[in-house]
Design a protein around this nucleic acid. Sequence first.
DNA 1: CCGGATCCGGTCTGATACTG
DNA 2: CAGTATCAGACCGGATCCGG
Lengths: 111, 111
Amino acid sequence: MKKMNEKIDWRSICPISSALDVIGDKWSLLIIRDLIIHEALTYSQFLESPEQISTNILATRLDLLTRLKLIERVHPELASRNNAYKLTKSGKALEPVIKSLGKWAGKYRSI
Amino acid sequence: MKKMNEKIDWRSICPISSALDVIGDKWSLLIIRDLIIHEALTYSQFLESPEQISTNILATRLDLLTRLKLIERVHPELASRNNAYKLTKSGKALEPVIKSLGKWAGKYRSI
DNA sequence: CCGGATCCGGTCTGATACTG
DNA sequence: CAGTATCAGACCGGATCCGG
């Protein structure tokens, strides 16, 4: 551990390491972005996203995000066919993060 | 360093995709976090971070972030020895993103 | 068809050793 | 101190296959 003698609030920044399994992955964030925009999406609807995620990657990410409880099935009682995914409460709570990220990108990474 | 995936550039359309070049990578984000906290750090100081980045990864990430103009050398006129890195203006502008991410992690991901 | 699972070549990662 | 070189293994992603 490093010394903590700064003015910035360390505790609001340090948990970043724990968030890395979510935001440290490109595809996971894109899935969350899509769900923020569209509320609920099926497996094949994710595949239609412009970024062209491949099926195996999508499957592993959906599984990961489900186990992390950031997303969940819209109708858990149904079979997988035509079942959609939506954000959980903690998944929705990422919206400010994604929005501030989008704001930054629009300002500093526009072409 | 070469581009990792040279396909159709959807990043020009979606700002989030464009931002994922930076924050879609675990180590890049940690480097930026460290620089937000410490203002300026040398190569070996990065290596002391608790996450234990390895030397080759650190070198490639510092190079990537420099080329993206998110970080820069504190004394460009000096040789690399004892030279530190700091955030550029656009790098600093990521602070709100990182803070909101930290806030989310602190609330929804137990430390 | 839909929601994945499996296979496989190629790329990237990261621990370690090494160099100026 | 600030990086390279190396190399095995993990991971990505495209194609294909499979169960319901």
